[in-house]
Design a protein around this nucleic acid. Structure first.
Lengths: 336, 336
DNA sequence: TCTCGTCGTTGAAACGATTCACTATCGGCA
DNA sequence: TGCCGATAGTGAATCGTTTCAACGACGAGA
């Protein structure tokens, strides 16, 4: 069943070493032999066995990418960026979706480590710095994406989430809003915590402003809708007049609940700002203001750093931090 | 640097065979030895080398999934479904994003074949039946997702796209619309062609109805916006009064161009129906009617069939076809 | 003619885990 | 006491590729 390099060698009447050379360094082999070997490969339908190749080489030519949520376009954009950069280097990206689930994240990290990938890009869920540093210590480069590494051992490519939270809420305060709600996902997620810290800073600078934190189980459309329904259930006077959502999925869910189901007016009754500026933000029922992150660039940069560290493990860790940008749309227009 | 089973054996003072047994069939080893081996593993930080394992085993414990567009939530939902089913079987899913690009698709298929994955799920871009049948002939099970296999050699899990196109356009015709445009992506993509065929059937049944086909370069939000701008540039009398978009991303782009930028009224001026019913469809500026596919179920089912075929390669190919369901929302409400 | 360098090719060792035939040990039973 | 079977552990062979020292052939230069 399985055709090996040995069969090819036999048919082409050369040694296995020569077949390997044809595959990997054809310039060392005479043209006639190259042609004969290629004929044999085609005739037998030979396909190289990557496991054997890796075993010998000691490492694979893939890198692993573990994202928090593959359904979030922000992360698929990161994956795109990483994929682009990877294919320019002849490397492929294996995508693992942790689905905001610690076990799955660990399972993918284990899998990638067992596969001896060139390196791992990961947007970690919690505080598994130790696990990641161990991975690094064992020789697998690790670059955090969308999260600043503070331990000092790992590199990271991230966005200044504190600044992002600050500019979002400053903007809401500039509109005259004073009762701001932060619709968080799980507060345990660092990015969420940082955005909250930024929001607090902004609120702290305005005497009569208040910040309410609504924690949620996940960063999803579904959860946004659930929280939106809770808000709707309140007396109108008890509702915030502005919401900063920890990401656009939550914001979209809020819009579904508040505007489409609840009949509230955005931004009149409640102004909303999201985070990530996904493609869909522009086409929501009320176009969504959002804090934009350069997602594709994040992916590209992270992959580049990862490959550099794989080539030279002695490189000092780097922290790249991009600045977020506020995109204002209808959902936070000033009232006349 | 690299710790092997041999080092563990030495430290634990047992043979390599025993270490392997501890890892794979611990019930055959005495408790004392199991404990000693585990201590050694921990002390050395040993991590199994998957390449060696696979080489010996002859196959990996991963399956490959090649999707047309990882940015389309429809495909990430399929991936989720496949991932759920896979983790129930102790298998992991490696996701490749072909980005509607034949070369990338081929590169991922090659990669997966070289990795000797258990099988491949693929939503093929064009008509590469031959390539896929060859893969199958070489011993790698292949299941098409979101596309019916007509050759009879491969299994597939899909949705009746012709029916989907038909119910979408019948619905538009029921609203009294007569000048229908099909905003297609690339017509070369089978699913698009099938949806068009369904649309034609529906239009053919109504004497004075007309169908116009607007071909696009890809199935993306961006392309939808571009086509929307073209429509806007026409005289109002020349515009269709209904649009059936080949997927929701196109429809979202159309909404951005027609409603947000162009000021047209939907559904009054133009009614719109999309395809896939992604999460965001419900929260667009005008809630989008769409043809729903059971995406998660498609992924699950495809993975189950794939594993069954991997276990028993003699199984006859199966074609599972789900029926799509029309979800009507504001974008195709009847006018009063 | 002899020697040297180059080019093309060879074949065996190595990568690390699994597997399987085999050995050693021990308790039970006649 | 002697034999049997069960149990625990051994270690060599194996998977398919890459790599590298070695080799033969051949042409150039002396």
């Amino acid at each position: 069943m399985a055709v090996s390099i040995r069969d090819v060698a036999e048919l082409a009447d050369v040694s296995v070493g020569t077949v390997s050379n044809v595959l990997n360094r054809p310039e060392r082999v005479s043209e006639a032999v190259v042609a004969r070997v290629h004929d044999a490969i085609r005739e037998l339908g030979y396909v190289r066995n990557d496991a054997a190749r890796q075993l010998r080489a000691g490492r694979s030519s893939s890198v692993g990418l573990v994202v928090l949520d593959a359904r979030n376009p922000f992360f698929t954009d990161i994956a795109r960026g990483a994929g682009d950069e990877a294919s320019a280097h002849g490397v492929s990206v294996l995508l693992g979706d942790s689905d905001q689930n610690l076990e799955r994240e660990a399972a993918y990290l284990d899998l990638f480590e067992e596969q001896r990938v060139r390196g791992v890009l990961v947007s970690p869920l919690g505080d598994e710095g130790e696990r990641l540093e161990r991975l690094r210590a064992h020789g697998t480069p690790v670059v955090l994406v969308d999260r600043r590494a503070d331990g000092g051992v790992l590199s990271s490519v991230s966005v200044d989430d504190v600044a992002g939270g600050r500019i979002a809420v400053e903007h809401l305060l500039d509109l005259g809003r004073r009762r701001v709600a932060f619709v968080a996902g799980p507060l345990g997620i660092r990015q969420v915590g940082d955005r909250l810290a930024g929001a607090r800073e902004a609120v702290g600078a305005v005497p009569d402003a208040r910040l309410e934190v609504l924690e949620g189980a996940s960063l999803s459309v579904f959860e946004g809708r659930r929280i939106g329904e809770q808000l709707l259930a309140r007396d109108a006077a008890e509702r915030p007049d502005a919401v900063f959502a920890a990401n656009d999925l939550l914001a979209v869910g809020l819009l579904q609940a508040l505007v489409m189901a609840g009949g509230l007016r955005v931004p009149d009754d409640i102004a909303i700002v999201g985070f990530d500026d996904i493609d869909f933000a522009e086409a929501t029922i009320v176009a969504l203001s959002s804090v934009r992150q350069p997602s594709r660039l994040i992916g590209q940069t992270a992959l580049r750093i990862l490959l550099e560290e794989a080539d030279d493990p002695t490189l000092a860790p780097r922290q790249v931090v991009f600045q977020p940008e506020l995109i204002t749309r209808a959902s936070s227009r000033p009232l006349r």
